[in-house]
Every structure is written in structure tokens, then in C-alpha cells.
Design a protein around this nucleic acid. Structure first.
Length: 936
DNA sequence: CTCGTCACG
DNA sequence: GACGTACGTGACGAGT
């Protein structure tokens, strides 16, 4: 501990107010159980602060402080009374938490600083300056752009949420100028959130442009008359005083009088009693446990303190040395006995591959109580991973058959719960050796039901977030790259620790999640939409779909030839050889060499060359014939390159040599809305929109004597929208089976249905989709390639015709802002932690919040259909193969095709019953054929 | 390992 | 006359 500050020392300054707001908006409104005191923001604040204090790495501070705003009135209000005048009122349940966050900071034994008349940012500026002048380093932990002017000369920032360092480069990326000119740019651009006026009509982009051209703000104002654009010139000349005031508002005061020195801020260990006392008073169970765990480890003297122990008696630290290795049958039977006694067990399998269809079982781990877990090695091999690793088994392992003789009855026992993290994986591994695991619990799915939108649901995240424990990483065991080994080459002693810990973590997560599932009111979601889908998906994946290698291979060759031809043409047009697949090189050819207009560089400094850009260039035939042709060829080449690399080439590699079929893997938690996602390979994005791409579906075939049947929901999201937004005319149209886009067009543009033109219908269709996505004038304008004003006109008229839509949108956003989540009609929750953010993030969050209930309800509907499907079609020779969001694909014996279509259609159309009655019918369209293209 | 691009609903 | 925007995904090649 140091009582000075200077060279070699490192000061961390935490922007406390920012923490509070992030914490408040990121968490559901938590209250203290005993008296209902709102403490959500305090809880989040403590979690972030504790994370910051226990962070390990090279950037460990020697000195630290949390800085807060004292009040909303500061010296800036004397300069400009309207400063921050349009800030929304503080939420009622947040205000009382402010003093608590100060108390929390002190409880963690961290200096807590606030000074009347100054913003936290000024104090941070002052301390950062002093730190650098004393020869030390300073890291500001905040993502506030107003602090970016301080970066440089030994001062850096770190965004605590993204854990991203903000250095000079990031500042330039954000403001277009270095830190020393940031205030000039801010003074010009103003800030609507803080009510800094700036120059009217000048935004960040223009401001940076001007400052870069003239050097600094004063020079710019002096020479404003030279500016060519009349609007800009007038804006600067007429508002010079306002701009200077703005600069004073955004400039931080680095000379705030302080009654302490940096030396007083040295890092101190928390006093266990004070800290645990505070946390217990707040009734933060998890954090109390986590802190007491940690302090016991680091400060053994505290272990005797009886208080914290009593607070979390059930919590055991993770101790890898207690995990058992099971090498003989008596030991295995002892574990089996304990499992039968308590009726549940956490299970995890270790294998040689992440691909369940090729993975070989290496071992099984079991956990029965927290801290009580074992690993049963079965397939570990000799030879530690060198190239000539033998195929001899390591001695001292039980044989698979002997293990299964004991475990199969347990794994299939309807009275014993099998708990896993991502159970679909283990289910498939066991299924391949003849064991059908049931009933199951899955901590990953529980997390997804409770916390979708807040974080991912991997075991590491869950363990860190809810157990305060970082599991042993797999990387050091397996290595990486060329020298990577498979799990069967891992030393058994290491494997025991790693594998048993996974089961232990899973068990503890399950215990901690159980009560929360009810509290979050998502038990039904978990039990009816998540858990039962596991065996359904596992069977679909294992069955796979037949893909014809020859068809793909022929297409690959044809594509390669066409591409070579196009490449020649492109090189000729360009006058030089370059890599057509490189967007960077292509951009240089188009915009530098050929001098085409419209070249815009993105933030990485590369020209944008996306399809929309290239399409615009193709229209310049008269002025730039060469460039227009080149762009057209590149578009063709790109399409072929995509089809070849992603589909015709890659799919061949995914044909399983044993089954001759392609086995995708669905993720139940990949999408926050509840949609599935598909990987390795992704079979949910096989081409269909272009004729050339569509032919790839001809390679997905039915075996001899069978056919593929495709059933897809017609307009399911629009139907759900018509229901939730309660639009009678749209609902009636769906009931009458009228073309919904044509009807929309007719209502909006007052064109009778029998006089509808394809173009008007196309526009209405774009608007209908836009609404589902949280429409904006900008987005629609870009999609339809029409002026923004016209697009806005369409939207206005749409809202006029269908007022329920606007109401739904604002109600949904309002709900999200109040609660932090939105819900589907089946109760699935999707959290929206960014909904109260400021800036462009808010726009994203709002649109996502509008879309999620619609997309999510549709996802729930097809999940329900899939779960019911197997029982509905048992009497038929048919298999469900694929799901593509609103489509199910079946493989069925020819003679059963008609019956399957009838039944599966009925299951899908009634999937929402009985829990939900919609004011619109759900309809399903069917097709069948010998391949997927023909079935659609 | 990130970015740009593009395939799907 | 721009803070910046349609929603949700996964895979590939290029380039760092």
C-alpha cells in the first residue's frame, strides 16, 4: 500500500453516475424483500464495482476512486441556464438509490468523491491531470463521450460494459478529430441530450470536417466568411457567441479545488465486516456469498467471522480436489445409490468432437450435491497427444458396457431428473449408444427463459454471473491450432477436475435457477416451449437430410467456369489484375482508378462496395460505361462465389460419411426472440430468392420411394400483428383470404382492388414488412429507393388508415421502458436493457422491442407445432427433418404423403390452441416433390 | 479475430 | 439537412 503517487502508479477513476444509470436500466426493477425498498440499481452498481475490484490482469490499479455528480446544478448553469434543462425527470424508484450507491462505495473501501458545483467529469479531469503531472498513469472507467477530450498523455478510457479500451484512435473514430480538438467539434455540433446549443444545422460529421480544415475553432470562427456553403457560413457567423458558450459548456474544468490528494486514494482491501454488513442489509444474497467466498480465500483471518457464514450457509466454495474419479464398479454403484436417493443428477458427457454425430464418448461426469461430483473415464487413450498417440486405452477405466449397465436404468428412469447444460448435446451422445435420456432439465434453457436479451447462456457466463465462479477453461487442456488434441488424450487427473466441475456447476445453477423460474413467471415458457423441444430437435438432427453430392459437385464446377469467365472480363475492364473477392481492392479499382462517383469510406477507411452500391453504379452506363459494366460483372461474380463457397462446396463437406446425410445443429437459444438458429451447416439460409440459387435446393432429395413435403405458415407475422395491434380491416382480410398486401395498398392509395398494379402492391408490401421491423422513414426510403419525404408520407398515411399500429408500437416501447422487457403472446420474455439508452442505441432498442413480440410469438407458435408433431404422426412413415422459421420440411413414404400433409397442416394451423385464440386464422400452405425445390 | 458481404425468414 | 436507423440470424474470404 502506498501513501504517495507518482511514477509506476496507476489511478483508476470510475464514473459512478454512469454506473448507476447503466445498472438501473440493465436490471429488472428489484426490491428489497423485507420492505420493498427499490435496490435494483444498487445491486447492479455493487456487481459492477465488485467485478472491477476483483478484475485480474496487467492493468491493476494502485489508486482508485468512484466519482459522482453532486447535484444537477453546476457552474455551467451560470454560463448557460438551459444547460441540461431538458433532462427527463429521474425515475421515482431511482432517486432513493443514490445515497445507497455512495454508501456501497464506502463499504467496498473505495474513495467516494463528489463536490458541490462541479460535475463528476470535472473532478475526473482534475484528478487525471494531477495523476499525469505526478508521473503516473490514469484510466477512466466510463464510456461517456464527454470524457474523451481527456484521452492521451498517459490517460486512457475503458468502456466497462464492452470492456473495450478507448484510446486516441477510438476518439478519432467517434469525433473525427483527436482528443485535443474534441471540445471544438462538440461546441459546433452541440448535444441535444445535454441541451448544448452548438451551431444550428451542423452535426458531428460537418463539425469534424470544418475543424480538420481550419485547424481549430477560433481560426474557423475568424475565417468563417471564407466558407463556401451559404448555410454553414451563416450558421457560424450568426451564432459565434452561442458556439463559444457551447465550448465552455463542454470543456471540462481540470482545476477543481480538492481537499485531498491522489495519494489518499490508494487501493485498500475491503473491511469484511463493513462490506458484508452492507450487502446483507441490502439483502443481496448472491453477492454476499460471492464476496464472502472471495474474502475467505484471500484473507484467511476472516474465515472465522461467523456472520457472513451464517448469511450463506449452503454456499460451498469450489474445491477441485474433492472430485472423485470412478474407476471401479463398487464406486459407481455408490454414486448410483445416492442418485436414486435424491431423485436427480447433473450429467455431462466428454467426447472427442463438438459434432454430436461424429463425437465418441470419452467419459461421463455426475454431480449429486454441490461440491460432490465425479468423473467416469471410459475412452481415454495413451500417448498424450503426439502424432503417434496409440489407440491403447489408459488402464484403470471402466468399460462402456459396464458403465451403461449401471447408468442406463438411471438415465431412462422416469422418476429421476437428469440435469444438463445444453442437454440436446448429451441426449444425442447417449442416443447414439442406445440410451434415451428422460426426463431432463436444462440450465441453458432455464436461463434463456429468464434472461433472454441480458446475456448469453453459455456455462461460463452463467457460472460467473450466478455462482461468482469461473470454471476451468478447456483451452489449456486441449491446446489450439495444429497442436490441439481431443479430449480422449487429456490426462485423466486433469479430466476429472474439468469434467466433474462442469457437472457441479450445472447442478448448482439448477438449484439456484429453480425458484427464480417461478419468480420470473416463465415456468410455463420453459416447460412448454423450451424443454420439450430438446428430444424433438435431437431426433431431427440425428435423422438428417439426404443431399446429393453429385448434383452439388456439378454445380460447383459450373460455377467455377462461369466465375473464371467473369474474372477475365472484370480484369479487362479494370485494366489490371486484382482479387475480385477483395472489397478493399475492388473499391480502389472503382473509385480511385476508374474515378467513379459515390465512393464513401466506412469507419475502417475502406470504400463500401455492397450490392446496393454496385447496383447504383450499374445505372451510370451513359457516363461511366466501363465502371457500370464492371459493377454488373462483379455482382454476377459475387453471387456465384457465394453460392459456390457457402453452399455447393461447403455442403459437400457436411455430408456425414456414415449416414450419407447432412446433420445440422439447431440452437434453442441462438436468437433472443425465441427463433431457432441453425449451424454446421446452417440449413435455414439455403438460397431460394434467385433462380440460380434456388437450384441448390434440388440437391436436397427424398430417398427412393419417398417424397419431401414442405408446409409453411402464410404471412404469420403479419397475422400476429393484425391481432396484437387489433386492426379490424386487416383481420377481416385474413379471414376472407384476401391478398393482404393488395388490400393494404388499396386502403392506403385509394386504388380499388381490381385496379391494383404490381408496383403499388410492391410498395404496400414493403410497408407491411417495415411495420413489423419498427418502421422509419429512412429505412423505407432506402428499401424502396424513393425520397425520404415520400416514404414518410406513406408511413403517415399507413398510420392514419391503421391507427392501432401506431398505438401498438408506442405501447410496446412504453412497456419496455417501464419494465425492461417485452413479451410474446405466450409469455416469453425478451429483455431490452438498452431501451432507455440515449443516442442512436435507443432507436435500435425501440425497433427491436417492437419486433420481438411479433417475431417471438410466431416462433412460439411453430415451436408448439413441432412439439406436438411427433405424437400426431406416429402412425405414418414420416419424419420431420428441418425447420426454417415458418416452414417445416418432412420426409415421408409416398403412400403416406397425403395423410401427413393433412395432419401436419392441422397441427400447425391449430398450434396456438388452446392457450391462445387469435382474431385471425393461421393458414399453412403445402407442397411436395422429390427434392426441396420441387416441394416448396 | 474482426470486418464486409450476403444467404435466409 | 442529418447522432443514425428497417427486425432476427450464420458462414465465408480478406486482411489485420
Amino acid at each position: 500500500m502506498s501513501d504517495s503517487f507518482g511514477k509506476g502508479h496507476h489511478l483508476h477513476l470510475i464514473d459512478g453516475s454512469a454506473y448507476i444509470f447503466r445498472a438501473y436500466h440493465a436490471l429488472p426493477p428489484l426490491t428489497r424483500k423485507s420492505d420493498g425498498l427499490p435496490v435494483g440499481a444498487v445491486a447492479g452498481f455493487c456487481n459492477i464495482l465488485w467485478g472491477e475490484l476483483t478484475k485480474s490482469g496487467r492493468e491493476v490499479p494502485t489508486h482508485i476512486a468512484v466519482i459522482f455528480d453532486f447535484s444537477s446544478k453546476t457552474f455551467r448553469n451560470d454560463i448557460y441556464p438551459l444547460y441540461k434543462a431538458n433532462r427527463p425527470e429521474l425515475p421515482e424508484d431511482l432517486r432513493p438509490q443514490f445515497p445507497l450507491t455512495r454508501a456501497a462505495t464506502r463499504a467496498f473501501n473505495v474513495a467516494c468523491i463528489e463536490i458541490d458545483g462541479f460535475e463528476a467529469d470535472d473532478i475526473i479531469a482534475t484528478l487525471a491531470r494531477q495523476a499525469v503531472e505526478a508521473g503516473g498513469a490514469c484510466t477512466i472507467i466510463s464510456s461517456d463521450k464527454d470524457l474523451m477530450q481527456l484521452v492521451g498523455n498517459g490517460v486512457r478510457m475503458r468502456d466497462p460494459m464492452k470492456d473495450k479500451t478507448i484510446d486516441r484512435d477510438e476518439v478519432i473514430e467517434k469525433f473525427g478529430v483527436g482528443p485535443e480538438r474534441v471540445v471544438d467539434v462538440q461546441a459546433l455540433a452541440g448535444d441535444s441530450v445535454d441541451n448544448v446549443p452548438g451551431a444550428p444545422g451542423i452535426g458531428l460529421k460537418t463539425a469534424a470536417l470544418l475543424i480538420n480544415e481550419y485547424g481549430d475553432l477560433e481560426t474557423l470562427l475568424d475565417r468563417a466568411v471564407e466558407i463556401k456553403q451559404p448555410k454553414r457560413r451563416e450558421a457560424l457567423i450568426n451564432n459565434a457567441e452561442l458556439i463559444r458558450i457551447s465550448k465552455r459548456l463542454v470543456s471540462l474544468d481540470a482545476h477543481v479545488p480538492l481537499d485531498f490528494t491522489i495519494a489518499d486514494l490508494s487501493v485498500l482491501e475491503p473491511e469484511p465486516e463493513a462490506l458484508l454488513g452492507f450487502l446483507q442489509e441490502m439483502e443481496f444474497r448472491t453477492l454476499t456469498r460471492r464476496v464472502s467466498d472471495r474474502l475467505q480465500v484471500e484473507a484467511p483471518a476472516v474465515a472465522e467471522t461467523p456472520e457472513p457464514k451464517a448469511a450463506a450457509p449452503e454456499r460451498l466454495p469450489f474445491d477441485h480436489s474433492t472430485y472423485a474419479r470412478v474407476s471401479d464398479l463398487p464406486a459407481l454403484h455408490a454414486w448410483a445409490d445416492r442418485i436414486r436417493e435424491i431423485g436427480h443428477v447433473a450429467v455431462d458427457t466428454e467426447t472427442t468432437s463438438l459434432d454430436e454425430m461424429r463425437a465418441e464418448l470419452v467419459g461421463i461426469s455426475l454431480a449429486v450435491d454441490p461440491g460432490r461430483a465425479c468423473y467416469i473415464p471410459i475412452g481415454h487413450k495413451q500417448g498424450g497427444g503426439d502424432l503417434f498417440g496409440s489407440t491403447d486405452l489408459v488402464p484403470g477405466q471402466l468399460a462402456l458396457d459396464d458403465v451403461l449397465a449401471v447408468l442406463k436404468p438411471i438415465l431412462e428412469d422416469p422418476a429421476i431428473l437428469k440435469i444438463g447444460q445444453n442437454m440436446k448435446y448429451d441426449w444425442k451422445i447417449f442416443a447414439r449408444i442406445g440410451v434415451t435420456v428422460a426426463p431432463i432439465e436444462d440450465t441453458m434453457l432455464m436461463s434463456s427463459a429468464m434472461y433472454a436479451g441480458l446475456h448469453n447462456h453459455g456455462m461460463d457466463t452463467l457460472s460467473e454471473t450466478y455462482l461468482g465462479h469461473t470454471p476451468i477453461p478447456i483451452k489449456p487442456l486441449l491446446g489450439s491450432g495444429k497442436s490441439a488434441i481431443t479430449f480422449d488424450r487429456v490426462a485423466i487427473d486433469d479430466a476429472v477436475k474439468y469434467a466433474a466441475e462442469d457437472a457441479d456447476v450445472t447442478l448448482r445453477l439448477w438449484q439456484s435457477f429453480q425458484p427464480n423460474l417461478h419468480r420470473a413467471k416463465v415456468t410455463t415458457v420453459y416447460e412448454t416451449l423450451e424443454r420439450p423441444l430438446v428430444p424433438v430437435l435431437a431426433r431431427m438432427e440425428m435423422h438428417g437430410i439426404q443431399v446429393d453430392r453429385d448434383t452439388l459437385s456439378r454445380m460447383s464446377n459450373a460455377f467455377a467456369q462461369k466465375m473464371a469467365g467473369l474474372e477475365d472480363e472484370i480484369q479487362t475492364l479494370a485494366g489490371d489484375r486484382f482479387n475480385v473477392g477483395s472489397p478493399k481492392q475492388l473499391g480502389e479499382v472503382l473509385f480511385d482508378r476508374l474515378g467513379l462517383p459515390g465512393g464513401t469510406k466506412g469507419k475502417t477507411g475502406a470504400y463500401a462496395t455492397g450490392a446496393d452500391v454496385l447496383e447504383d453504379i450499374t445505372t451510370l452506363e451513359d457516363t461511366y460505361p466501363q465502371g457500370a459494366q464492371l459493377a454488373a460483372r462483379v455482382l454476377d461474380w459475387r453471387q456465384l462465389a457465394k453460392l459456390k463457397s457457402t453452399y455447393t462446396d461447403a455442403l459437400q463437406d457436411h455430408i456425414n460419411p456414415e449416414t450419407g446425410r447432412v446433420h445440422t445443429s439447431y440452437s434453442l437459444v441462438g436468437a433472443v426472440t425465441g427463433r431457432l438458429s441453425s449451424t454446421d451447416p446452417n440449413l435455414q439460409n439455403i438460397p431460394i430468392r434467385t433462380e440460380e440459387g434456388r437450384r441448390i435446393r434440388e440437391a436436397f432429395v427424398a430417398p427412393a420411394g419417398r417424397v419431401l413435403v414442405s408446409l409453411d405458415y402464410s404471412q404469420i407475422e403479419l397475422r400476429i400483428l393484425a391481432h396484437v395491434a387489433d386492426i379490424p380491416s386487416l383481420q377481416q382480410a385474413f379471414r376472407d383470404g384476401i391478398d393482404i398486401h393488395a388490400l393494404t395498398a388499396s386502403e392506403m392509395f385509394s386504388v380499388p382492388l381490381d385496379q391494383m398494379t404490381p408496383d403499388i402492391r410492391r410498395r404496400a408490401k414493403a410497408i407491411n414488412f417495415g411495420v413489423i421491423y419498427g418502421i422509419s422513414g429512412f429505412g423505407l426510403a432506402r428499401n424502396l429507393r424513393i425520397p425520404r419525404a415520400e416514404a414518410q408520407g406513406f408511413i403517415d398515411r399507413y398510420f392514419e388508415r391503421f391507427p392501432g399500429i401506431k398505438e401498438y408500437m408506442s405501447e410496446t416501447v412504453k412497456f419496455a421502458q417501464g419494465s425492461g422487457y417485452v413479451q410474446t403472446l405466450f409469455g416469453r420474455k425478451i429483455h431490452t436493457p438498452e431501451i432507455n439508452a440515449k443516442g442512436p442505441t435507443a432507436g435500435f432498442a425501440k425497433r427491436a422491442a417492437i419486433n420481438a413480440p411479433i417475431q417471438g410469438t410466431a416462433a412460439d407458435v411453430i415451436r408448439r407445432a413441432m412439439i406436438r408433431m411427433p405424437d400426431a404422426i406416429t402412425h405414418l412413415d414420416a419424419k420431420m427433418l428441418l425447420q426454417v422459421h415458418d416452414e417445416l420440411l418432412f420426409d415421408v413414404a409416398e403412400e403416406d404423403a397425403a395423410e401427413l400433409t393433412r395432419i401436419a397442416k392441422a397441427v400447425m394451423e391449430n398450434a396456438h390452441h388452446p392457450v391462445l385464440t387469435l382474431k385471425v386464422p393461421l393458414t399453412v400452405e403445402a407442397g411436395q416433390g422429390l427434392n426441396w425445390a420441387a416441394a416448396h
